[in-house]
Amino acid sequence: MPGYAIEAEDLKKTFKTSVGRAFLKKQAIIVNAVDGLSLRVGSGQIHSLVGPNGAGKTTTIKILSTLLIPDSGRALVGGFDVVKEPGKVREIIGLVLAPDKGFYTRLTGLENLVYYGRLYGLSRGEAIRRAYELLELVGLADEGKRLYEEYSLGMKAKLSIAKAMINDPSIIFLDEPTIGLDPISARRVRQIIRDLATQGRTILLTSHNMWEVENLSNKVSLIKGGKIVVEGSPADLKERLRLNYRIEVELLDSPAPAAKFQTQVGERGYPVITLETSQPSEDLVRLLEQLRWDGCRIGYVRVHEPSLEEVFEKVMTS
């Protein structure tokens, strides 16, 4: 699959579960966690999977990381089939499933990384060297000898990313890596993710933080009911869904324009013209020319770009 680090075709995965409280009255139900999902992730890209809870994001990541076998469909990771060649896939991937899980609480951060290094077959010396390198990379160099149980959530998240890097993977799966983190820790984690992508690694990310997704991702796939409903770069998605920009122009002194434009009183007490448009450049120029012609003095001009959150809302509610 040249050009694609990850390629999935018509993946399906169902889980059997039961409802009902009484043992004998339980009713079996089938949940279609992933329902015909197809996905292509370019090499060296940060690709985000976004969707509501239960949409199938984590199940998809678990299939791609060989933890779960799909009921049908095919997925290649780094050119290797996740069902037929799981061992080869495991060699080239890194995985974070939850930022605060996966470690021995009674071991230090360093010892935990060494443990994972040994799991990937490194010798003791190599594992220790690599662990120190990664602690430095994620900003935990001074905390490596503290017990994991003493770590804050932010430190645990950084250690999770270090763990995912222990085998120097070319493809990294990050399932909500900043969930529950304070803004400073989250920013640090995002910077680490950017750095990893700069090194040419492919990253498949899930997150509920739309701002984060918009700022990190080259491409976003919106997933709903176990399948991808729309995908593209954040800018593409906004354009394709024809989400409107909002233009605000504050008028300090307005001889006559109130009759032509709808205004409302702004935060500073002056009238503000608000205009929703899908062609912000053209409409803004036209508006400013008109105001100049009318002899208006302008306080400020603001252009609000539609956010990915609005894209998400539009897709999920449609």
């Binding site: 060989t66 499933l97 939850a98 899980k101 996966g102 470690f103 021995y104 077959g121 763990k163």
Partner: peptide, 18 residues
Amino acid sequence: MTGRLEYILAAPINPFIV
């Protein structure tokens, strides 16, 4: 509980060794 088992299963190691 700790998620360690998932990471073991996603690593290139025979779980029997673990």
